[in-house]
Simulated scan of single mutants.
Amino acid sequence: MSATPPDAPPAPGAEGPAPAAPVPTELPPPATPDPTAPEAVDAVAVARLYGEPLFALPQDLYIPPDALRVFLEAFQGPLDLLLYLIRKQNFNILDIPMADVTRQYLKYVEQIRKTNLELAAEYLLMAAMLIEIKSRMLLPPKPSEDGQEPEDPRAELVRRLLEYEQMKLAALRLDELPVMGRDLLRAQVAMEQSLVARLPEVSVDDLRGAWADILRRAKLHQHHRISREQLSVREYMGHLLRRLQGVRYLPFEELFDVSRGTAVVVVTFIAMLELTRERLLEVTQAEAYAPIFVRLAYTPA
């Protein structure tokens, strides 16, 4: 016996309401879960739509225009924006056309003021400064007391722009230098620890102590050698006579060569005493504690 579906129209010639559908004796199988649906616990939202997490991109790739906004922070501050407007239009930075630059600057500030009021506050301060400079340029300059020409109202702004440009270029040059992790990668080699001979680590203090011990042992093995020098008194007597020839007198201390050592000085002194005993030299002194002079006791032919 077949049952008529509840939504089917009544058969022709049939009267009265359609018979009721039979009650199923078994429950329908559960719906197969969608494999693309993410789990609510471990899944990470790829975006947020009106504050709600979005775990997968929509199939039609449609996002309402007012639900997604992208901001590109192309400028790092008011000075960066001003410098961009000046350099892009090839304006002379020493002769800035304040009307054009101020108009373009205010147009940009109006755009960011609609989205980020805190970010626009700093730009509004610079806008007020630009308007003030423009108004000062429209007014006749005040004569200075010392008779010099009044300062250009744009001078302070130009100075700040030039300093900022120098710092920006320096930062770009520093950024071009190779950086570990960005431009260079540190080479790493895996080595089996069991195959590598582990040598003891030596510190600077260990080397210093070993060197001091070597020096101490070297001092214990030093030898003092005594050499005998043959010095002749007769030879130095002749040396003194040759030195005093042609000289009226010499100071006593100039006869001794102290650089050759004590032995030579002693032999020279003995040679002088021997020549004095033989009356070949005269040792004279004008008065007590006066300098002592030595001269020949005879006049050579």
Score class of each variant (00 low, 15 high):
I131A: 10
R136M: 05
L138R: 15
P141F: 10
P141L: 06
K142D: 13
K142G: 05
P143D: 03
E145W: 12
E149L: 15
E149W: 14
E151A: 03
D152A: 03
D152G: 04
R154L: 00
R154T: 05
A155R: 02
A155M: 12
L161E: 02
E163H: 08
E163D: 08
E165I: 07
E165V: 05
E165F: 09
Q166C: 04
M167G: 05
K168V: 07
L169N: 07
L169K: 13
R173N: 07
L174S: 05
L174N: 12
D175N: 09
D175V: 02
E176C: 06
L177E: 02
L177V: 02
P178C: 08
R182D: 05
R182G: 04
D183P: 00
L185N: 12
R186D: 03
R186C: 10
Q188M: 06
V189F: 08
A190I: 14
A190T: 13
M191V: 13
M191N: 07
M191F: 13
E192M: 09
E192D: 10
S194D: 05
V196K: 14
R198L: 09
L199Q: 03
V202I: 04
V202A: 09
S203T: 13
V204W: 09
D205W: 07
D205I: 11
D206Y: 12
R208T: 13
R216K: 12
R217T: 05
R217Q: 06
R217V: 04
K219Q: 04
K219M: 11
K219I: 14
K219L: 08
